[in-house]
C-alpha cells in the first residue's frame, strides 16, 4: 500500500518445485469444522501435488477478464476452465471490477501493481514457488518468468514462522491499533489464503465466516496453516468474496446476502485460483508436441525438452558445421551429411553442396565459397585430355595385369617341372635299392687304386661289390 519498488531485489522466499513423478498430478482435499476460541468454523484445505502443471490463476470469466474489468462468480470462471477445485483469488475494486496487484495467468501478464509492495504468490517457469515481496523488475523477469502470479494482502507465514507483524509494517506504515489495516488483520471474517508446504505442494485454504460475526482472523488462519506444515503463505481476498467451488459447484457458505435477504449469494469476484487436471507447460507444447497426462510428447525427431522447445540433433550437434533445425542439420556451406561431418565432393560447393563448381578446365573449387583460385589452372585438364589419359590408364592397367599373370604362370610351370624331375630321380634310386642299402667303395683317388684293392687283386670275391 505504502511503498513502491521498481528495481532491485525485495524480500521473498523461493521454494524449489517438488520432483516430477509421472501420473502424480492429483490433489488432496480436506474439509474441516474447527474451533477457534470456541467458535466453530468450517472450511477446506486443498493440496495440489504438482503446482506447475495443476495450478492456474484465472481471469474473471476467462482470458481478457481483467482488461475488460469483468466480474464473475467463481463457479462461472471455474466451469469454463474445468477446475476441480477453485477459490476466489486476488483483490479488486468493487465499483469498477478492476483487478488489483500483479496478475499473471498461464504466462500472460494481465495486471501490474507497478512495484506496489503487497504480498505476492507465484510460480516461475521452472516450477519455483515464490512468496513475498517483489520489485517490478523481479515481476518482469524474462529469464525465468512467472507463469502464475497474484497479489494478496499480508504475508501470513514466512519460512515456517508467522510473519504478520513484519508484513503490516511493510505493506502499510500506519500500524496504529485502531487503523483500518490493523482491523483487517484482527477481525474475524471469511478468509482465503494460498501458500505451499515443505514438500513443495501448493496449499489453498478457505474458511467460511462473516465479518465481525463468524470466521477467523489472520492470526488464527496463520496458526492453522502452520499446523498443516505450510511454510509460506499469503492472505487473499475474504469477506463476501470468500468462495469455494468443487467440480464446478458452490461448496461453501458465502456471506453476502442475495437481493432477497433470506438467502446468501456468491459474489461476483475478480481473479480465481484453480486446481485442475495436469496440463502441459506450456499447454500447447510450443506447437511441437501433444500433451498427454500433463507431459509433452514431442513430434518430429529433433524437438526435445519438457516443453518441446529445444532442438537436438544428437550428440555431434551437426559437428559444429551446421544449424540444428526441426528437419535436422542444416549444414554450413562446404559441408554435407546428416551430421554435416563430410566435406563437399569435388566439383560441388555451397550450402548442402548443392551448387556445382563453375571453374575453367573443370578445376575443383573452394567447397565453401565456390572460389576457383585454390588450384592452378595448369593442373586442371581439358575434358578431351582427361578422357585420353583415362583411356591410357585403363590400357596400362590391362597390360600390366596380363604381364603379371603370364609371369606367374611361367614361374608355376618351372616350379612344376623341377618338382617332377626331383620326384622321378628319387623314384629311380628307390627302385635299385629295393628298400636296402649298399656300399660304394671309392675307386681311386688322384688316379691311384685304394689299399684294399692293392691287397686283393684279381678274382677275389667281394660280397659287397655292387
Amino acid at each position: 500500500d505504502c511503498t513502491r519498488v521498481r528495481a532491485g531485489s525485495r524480500e521473498h522466499e523461493s521454494w524449489p518445485p517438488p520432483p516430477t513423478t509421472p501420473g502424480a498430478g492429483g490433489l488432496a482435499l480436506r474439509t474441516f469444522v474447527s474451533h477457534f476460541r470456541d467458535r466453530a468454523v468450517a472450511g477446506h484445505l486443498t493440496r495440489a501435488v504438482e503446482p506447475l502443471r495443476t495450478f492456474s490463476v484465472l481471469e474473471p470469466g476467462g482470458p481478457g477478464g481483467c482488461a475488460a474489468r469483468r466480474r464473475a462468480t467463481v463457479e462461472e470462471t471455474a466451469r469454463a476452465a474445468d477446475c476441480r477445485v477453485a477459490q476466489n483469488g486476488g483483490f479488486f475494486r468493487m465499483n469498477s471490477g478492476e483487478c488489483l496487484g500483479n496478475v499473471v495467468s498461464d504466462e500472460r501478464r494481465v495486471s501490474s501493481s507497478g512495484g506496489l509492495q503487497n504480498a505476492q504468490f507465484g510460480i516461475r517457469r521452472d516450477g519455483t514457488l515464490v512468496t513475498g515481496y517483489l520489485s517490478e523488475e523481479e515481476v518482469l523477469d524474462t529469464e525465468n518468468p512467472f507463469v502464475q502470479l497474484l497479489s494478496g494482502v499480508v504475508w501470513l507465514i514466512r519460512n515456517g514462522s508467522i510473519y504478520i507483524n513484519e508484513s503490516q509494517a511493510t505493506e502499510c506504515d500506519e500500524t496504529q491499533e485502531t487503523g483500518s489495516f490493523s482491523k483487517f488483520v484482527n477481525v474475524i471474517s471469511a478468509r482465503t489464503a494460498i501458500g505451499h508446504d515443505r514438500k513443495g505442494q501448493l496449499v489453498l485454504f478457505h474458511a467460511d465466516g462473516q465479518t465481525e460475526q463468524r470466521g477467523i482472523n489472520l492470526w488464527e488462519m496463520a496458526e492453522f496453516l502452520l499446523k498443516q506444515d505450510v511454510v509460506n503463505a499469503i492472505n487473499l481476498d475474504g469477506g463476501g468474496s470468500a468462495t469455494f467451488v468443487l467440480n464446478g459447484t458452490l461448496a461453501s457458505y458465502p456471506s453476502d446476502h442475495c437481493q432477497d435477504n433470506m438467502w446468501r449469494c456468491p459474489r461476483q469476484v475478480s481473479t480465481v485460483v484453480c486446481v485442475h487436471e495436469p496440463r502441459c507447460q506450456p499447454p500447447d507444447c510450443h506447437g511441437h508436441g501433444t500433451c498427454v497426462d500433463g507431459h509433452c510428447h514431442c513430434t518430429g525427431h529433433f524437438w526435445r525438452g519438457p516443453g518441446c522447445d529445444e532442438l537436438d540433433c544428437g550428440p555431434s550437434n551437426c559437428s559444429q558445421h551446421g544449424l540444428c533445425t526441426e528437419t535436422g542439420c542444416r549444414c554450413d556451406a562446404g559441408w554435407t551429411g546428416s551430421n554435416c561431418s563430410e566435406e563437399c565432393p569435388l566439383g560441388w560447393h555451397g550450402p548442402g553442396c548443392q551448387r556445382p563448381c563453375k571453374c575453367e578446365h573443370h578445376c575443383p573449387c573452394d567447397p565453401k565459397t565456390g572460389n576457383c583460385s585454390i588450384s592452378g589452372v595448369k593442373q586442371c585438364l581439358q575434358p578431351s585430355e582427361a578422357t585420353l589419359r583415362a583411356g591410357e590408364l585403363s590400357f596400362f592397367t590391362r597390360t600390366a595385369w596380363l604381364a603379371l599373370t603370364l609371369a606367374l604362370a611361367f614361374l608355376l610351370l618351372i616350379s612344376t617341372a623341377a618338382n617332377l624331375s626331383l620326384l622321378l630321380s628319387r623314384a629311380e634310386r628307390n627302385r635299385h635299392l629295393h628298400g636296402g642299402y649298399a656300399y660304394h667303395p671309392l675307386q681311386e683317388m688322384n688316379g691311384e687304386p685304394l689299399a684294399t684293392e692293392k691287397e686283393q687283386p684279381g678274382g677275389a670275391h667281394n660280397p659287397f661289390k655292387d
Binding site: 500500500d1 505504502c2 511503498t3 513502491r4 483483490f91 468493487m94 506496489l116 494482502v153 499480508v154 505493506e171 502499510c172 483500518s180 489495516f181 483487517f184 477481525v187 471474517s189 471469511a190 462473516q210 465479518t211 481476498d237 475474504g238 469477506g239 463476501g240 468474496s241 458465502p254 456471506s255 453476502d256 446476502h257 442475495c258 437481493q259 432477497d260 433470506m262 438467502w263 449469494c265 456468491p266 459474489r267 461476483q268
Partner: peptide
C-alpha cells in the same frame, strides 16, 4: 432456484475506500 445477485454487503477491506494508494 436463482436467488438473484449478491448484494456485496460483507465488505472486508484492508485499506479505507477513500484513501488514495499513492506512492511516496
Amino acid at each position: 432456484l436463482d436467488s438473484g445477485a449478491s448484494r456485496d454487503d460483507d465488505l472486508l477491506l484492508p485499506y479505507p475506500r477513500a484513501r488514495a494508494r499513492l506512492p511516496r
